[in-house]
Write a protein that binds this DNA or RNA. Structure first.
Lengths: 203, 203
DNA sequence: GACAATACCAAGCAAGCGCTTGGTTTGTAA
DNA sequence: TTACAAACCAAGCGCTTGCTTGGTATTGTC
């Protein structure tokens, strides 16, 4: 299954909104604006204007502004969990599995879903405590995929450091690429960047 | 020179504010609040209440709210540049110099100046474009300290990946520790964490 | 003790915010 | 055609925001 096939099946299961539908379009624009200006600086009037409706009409689709932020995050995690699972299935050795995860996460961060991924990282504090708990549960599933592979590598002797620590370092390092990585002509490709990450870890 | 001696000499040169003075206390509280709730969610009334004055009185010390954010960032970079320089002087080999930088940055992020460091990372977008340019100039000096060491390590053959990329990965990985690292009794110490970082890079 | 300069307060303004309201248009299906 | 719900608009309410204003303590200096 490739990336768009995964997206299609998630839409069919009603786990993520169709980007061509009204709700999906709003979430896409919301992710873009939240990333560009931050959640607090983005007004409901900005959001409404981005999809061409009046600000009040937003509240027909979502009860509060925060609900929009939560929806962006929840759908992003759902999509990425599926993407990581696919990356794992495509690899046979643990080393290749880790490379697959790194490559897939870099693609999520710097590709089409990058805005939503950045929101997940940088707008976390804007979520209410209640919503944070809800989203964290989904995140645990996602993180377990990484930890399983890293622990296997440790048992193989290919990894010296602690898997928990390594995953957290990787989370920071990979998320941060969104602030500097620009795949321009002749520069570093996503595969090249993945190579650099693996080289840095001497893997 | 130890950490507090460095701070003292910067205060003497008027490069950072004395934390016991009025301006310094405000900046400390501002860093705490900006980190805790974010810049946008922190009101001038919150800031004023934290130092025990009226909200209007803030504008006797700073012309705008944004100027407070900028001051937090500028002083943080100044202090940290001095700390990194001290770490470099205390080491003889390049490997030890890198370890010194990692250790010092982890201490900045997770120690007393941690709040201000987190603000520097997470509230960047809240700075106006003009202020961003100003702060970036200071940041370049800071980054050069890292790049020099990493480039030397590459020439020695101890490092395979590109120094620019490695530094950026480290920036992300180390900043991110602020979201999860808690030096609790019996857990990972700052030195232990530094070891993990070096081990991850097989250095 | 006179006199600035500095630090602060009390009050409030103008603008922008999230969200609500009452009513109209659009899509769908019998 | 009728019926009805979903989607939307126009207007604006109530509140909070950053910041200003005019005046009053407090501090340092000679």
């Amino acid at each position: 299954m490739n990336q768009s096939q995964i997206l299609q099946s998630l839409i069919a299961e009603n786990l993520v909104s169709d980007p061509s539908g009204a709700r999906g379009r709003l979430l896409t624009e919301a992710a873009r604006l939240f990333r560009e200006k931050g959640y607090e600086r983005t007004t409901v009037r900005d959001l409404a204007a981005a999809v061409g409706i009046q600000s009040g009409s937003l509240f027909h689709h979502f009860r509060t502004k925060e609900e929009i932020l939560k929806a962006v995050m929840v759908e992003t995690i759902r999509l990425n969990t599926a993407l990581m699972q696919a990356a794992l299935e495509a690899a046979d050795t643990n080393r290749k599995k880790l490379r697959g995860l790194v490559r897939a996460e870099l693609e999520s961060i710097n590709g089409q879903t990058g805005e939503a991924m950045a929101v997940l990282v940088f707008e976390w504090r804007s979520l209410s405590a209640a919503s944070q708990v809800e989203v964290l549960e989904l995140r645990d599933i996602y993180e377990k995929l990484w930890l399983d592979v890293l622990e296997s590598l440790k048992h193989e002797g290919a990894l010296e450091a602690d898997p928990f620590v390594v995953r957290r370092m990787l989370t920071g390092a990979l998320s941060w690429t969104v602030t500097w990585y620009k795949p321009e002509r002749g520069g570093l490709t996503l595969d090249g960047l993945t190579d650099q990450v693996m080289a840095m870890m001497a893997l």
